[in-house]
Design a protein around this nucleic acid. Sequence first.
DNA 1: ATTGATTGCACCATCGATTGTGCAATTTTG
DNA 2: CAAAATTGCACAATCGATGGTGCAATCAAT
Lengths: 352, 352
Amino acid sequence: MKKSTKKKATIYDLSVLSGCSASTISAVLNGTWRQRRISESTAERILGLARDHNYTTNMQARGLRSSQSGLVALLLPVHDSRYFSSMAQTFDARVRERGQCPIVISTCRDPKEEYQTVETLISYSVDTLLIAGATDPDSIHRLCKEAGLKHINIDLPGRSGPSVITDNYAGAVELTWSIINSFSDDDSITPSDIYMFGGRDDHNSRERNRGFRDVKDAHFKTKTEETIVPTGYAPGFAQKAFEEFYETHGNLPRGIFVNSSINYEGLLRFMAKHPPETFENLVIGCFDYDPFGSFLPFQVTMVRQDVEKMIDRAFQLIDAGEMTPRTYLIPPQFVPQRTALTGPLDLLKDVP
Amino acid sequence: MKKSTKKKATIYDLSVLSGCSASTISAVLNGTWRQRRISESTAERILGLARDHNYTTNMQARGLRSSQSGLVALLLPVHDSRYFSSMAQTFDARVRERGQCPIVISTCRDPKEEYQTVETLISYSVDTLLIAGATDPDSIHRLCKEAGLKHINIDLPGRSGPSVITDNYAGAVELTWSIINSFSDDDSITPSDIYMFGGRDDHNSRERNRGFRDVKDAHFKTKTEETIVPTGYAPGFAQKAFEEFYETHGNLPRGIFVNSSINYEGLLRFMAKHPPETFENLVIGCFDYDPFGSFLPFQVTMVRQDVEKMIDRAFQLIDAGEMTPRTYLIPPQFVPQRTALTGPLDLLKDVP
DNA sequence: ATTGATTGCACCATCGATTGTGCAATTTTG
DNA sequence: CAAAATTGCACAATCGATGGTGCAATCAAT
């Protein structure tokens, strides 16, 4: 019983077909018909008609009227990292559970793109916005606030809104200890054996740096010299940093704290240019979990940021209307070598 | 010069402020003012006002009127795989270049979610839809067609619309040869040494299976027995398949063609339960590229599906209005062991 | 049988932008 | 200088759904 006319059915079409007014149709179809005292029988009749003509609500019209959209957006620096893609996967699932429509957008860490994208999202009346790793959270916060858009920072904190982030310090401390403890006592290491690569001058990097330094200082019982090489987040820059270190010293540091899985890819690029033996005794600690990265042929421990808890907490705060600029820390999970965690990928509705 | 009232400026606000009519404002702001013979001076004045009051178009209103949205959507089975996340990354970049707004949504390979999601997207008047790995492309095609939504299949072909997919057969052939050729001549292998794990009964798997069989038959100069273990796409099922094989045979096959990077994660889970020595002489060929997966401690070659070309071709076809149900094959890229390709991640606008 | 409450729905303005049409004022043409 | 052409803009209908308000019909109560 499908209309062969190309156009989609509207409440007006159903209005004519049913003999009811458009407002009645509207009420029935959006579920408010009980409050509007539409009789059960008319409701059923209309719902039947709607099914037959496979009516679907025009969300633009509804959105225009109600200035809502049912869309919930996640703003990502990049898609192509297992940290962010697992975040997207979890986000999608959670938003669907809430009966809304999840959309995910990346901005390549470009502040201009970020700003414009948020403006666009606002113009679509997106209901809620999760901002992951914004480079300039505060100006985005201002935008959202002016538009009355519920939003929250994930991963990187902002000064003006609530933020749910990983406990970077705690994670860095654990990771650094695990690197140091990988070396047996008789195989003595010096402060210059342990380096940190990656990151830049953002909150997360600073906290990770602090954890790294504190543990080094505690272990070597002295204020150790600077062994942190910030490279930004792009893999190419990290690669260059490894190359330079290698050229200067003739080898890599014996233990390396890698600031993120994207920086870890910089190490991959370095590895591709050097024989496997170069890495036989390497000890890596990576802040971020990548399942394949956990099985590389050297000692590698990882820290998995708990995206599920972060997303859940974010929605709790949003539902509670909490907009105070507070930062909520989520403890990350320490991941030993050769570990394949189950994750959002297991949400696949697939048959064996 | 910002209005302190919370509400966003509309063309009517600007209309009052400028003394012009709303239609004039509209024309100026959407760029059609020349055709509507609005004088340059009024245009400039209005544009100035718009800037001062930081006007932005309400896309829901525009969309309602013009039944367009400026949104371009990519439907993904899952986010959390480097194949799909690199596809998303490339997609985002391309759509931005076209001045539209990219949105990415995953459906967990759930046909019901897929269908509903497409319905939702239609109700938002999404302009264009790229469908990656739909489980039921044809019913989705029908939906889109009825709604007049421009769409195209990526990755998995549909019978009713145009499809841009990887040349799975060619990729599988190359990959299988590379597995076989990894064994030196004096280290003779038998047909039962080479297995294929993963995939199920979809077009891509069938083509990959065919390539695998053809090469095996050619190499062993005989119709070889069945050595394909379909497991579906979920990592958990693949893991189970490896476990079962191992229990039955006491070892893994010497050479394994893994159907996808997600199945490869099933192998990871298996690996986590067995000592590293188990895998020392393993030869893996994986259909899909994962940078970390390329550095695992055994021989592993991969096939990278060329997402850039796929996306580009898809947009070409869409722009050309090509809606004939034809399948366009994109040759994949063979990736040797220990290779770290640059990719969409390098789009990161980051500073060293 | 009258009054009052309740049921069941229709009417209509509204959200913000787009666009076909009309018309006065100005400029050009002959 | 009158007619024709052009310029510059205003008017109003429209996209599809929402929700406040109003009103007739039915039912209950006195």
